[in-house]
Amino acid sequence: MHMADALLSPAVGGVMWVAAAGTLAYSATKLSKGDSEDLNNPKSVSFDKKIPLMGVLGAFVFASQMINFTIPGTGSSGHIGGGILLASLLGPEAGFLTIASVLVIQCLFFADGGLLALGCNMINMGFFACFIGFPFIYKKILKNGFTPTKIMIASIVSVVISLQLGAFGVVCETMLSGVTELPFSTFVVLMQPIHLAIGLVEGVLTGCVLIFIYNAKPELLVGYDGSTVKENVSVKKVALVLVVVAALIGGGLSLFASANPDGLEWSIQKVTGSTELDRSSGVSDALGSVQESTAFLPDYAFKSDSENTAGTTVSGIVGSAITLGLAALIGFGASKVKKGSNHNSQKHA
């Protein structure tokens, strides 16, 4: 559901950039001050211990998004968003910062999603999941205790609703941008059902990952109630498993991704006959030039690789590694600021 710049006016893209920047600033501030309620649960793993996991999960989501799964009977495909998965393990603030890291790297280095549309993509794929789906749906379902069945139900319902909000956000953003090629009523009727199907698949996949972690190290789950403790498994072991899986997905399984257009492209194609719109402005053209200069593997492929096999493999591994580093760096930065603030507070006490 990565939006392209052609779907937006500069005004709408700019407003969404401001909204995304505000959410990033809010999230970073909450983490640096240690004010995140979800990371101050004494029964769960502390944020400092989760910092490596922040990077690993970013890499895992990056790699997983490279695998488009076919939606039977539609000619469309989908991929996971990852917002609920990240928020359920890191909390909404760290989860949003992590998904934002994934989107920035996809945009700048792989030309996946427009630069003007980056703010929209952060809100549609990150904000709705981390700050609406997670606290108001996922946590509510699990408030009276964790079981594998409840984790699966919470994952499916929260992912579906978050993705529905994100899909509706795309429709509203194109409407406000004056994209007359995509009439609101027609576009929304196509976008919502196809993303319902995608959300159901992502919800099940998210539930499977979270159930694995619950069985291995339940303290990693935000809101963990302390009813089950397995001291024999460390955070490092869970992180190592996720790193290996991310490498396998990005470096190998991504080659078998569905070639069908994703839900957004499919919806556009149903209305216009093409998966892309031919619209531009001075702002989008300028930002497009910037993106062309930074994207060393556009569309996850080498320009000289007609089969796209080597480029896809390299993109999966390199992109996952860069995401791991950036997300972990953000986490370490927030932790450093938090420790510095605590030290200064003690000095003045």
Rank of each mutant, 00 (worst) to 15 (best):
M1A: 08
L242I: 13
V170G: 03
L277Y: 11
F69M: 03
Q269S: 12
A19Y: 14
F212I: 06
M54Q: 13
P42R: 00
L8Q: 12
V271K: 11
P148F: 06
E276Y: 06
G250M: 09
L329M: 11
K139M: 02
G113A: 12
Y224S: 08
I51N: 01
Q192G: 09
K237A: 05
L240I: 04
E292K: 13
F62K: 07
S267Q: 01
K150E: 02
E265A: 14
K336L: 11
G91S: 01
G288Q: 11
L163P: 13
L103N: 09
V209D: 06
G340Y: 02
A246F: 02
S158C: 12
V157M: 09
G82K: 07
P183F: 05
S315Q: 14
Y26Q: 12
K139P: 00
D112K: 14
L97S: 08
M3V: 04
A59Y: 03
S335G: 05
E265L: 04
G73E: 09
S281D: 06
H79W: 13
G288I: 04
A28W: 15
T180P: 00
G95H: 00
V18F: 13
I80H: 05
L8D: 02
K50Y: 09
F146K: 04
P148D: 02
S304T: 00
S185A: 04
P92Y: 03
T149Q: 11
W17A: 15
D225A: 02
K50W: 12
L326W: 08
P10A: 05
Q164M: 06
V290I: 14
H195S: 08
P72V: 10
A100E: 02
F47L: 01
A111L: 12
G34Y: 11
N144R: 02
A117R: 02
V170N: 09
N124G: 07
V12F: 06
S101Y: 06
Q346G: 00
S280G: 07
I137E: 06
E37Y: 09
T98N: 10
G13A: 13
K143G: 02
N342E: 15
T272L: 06
A6I: 03
S77M: 10
Q106P: 04
F302Y: 10
F69A: 00
E231Q: 08
Y300V: 05
A20R: 04
L86M: 14
I249R: 15
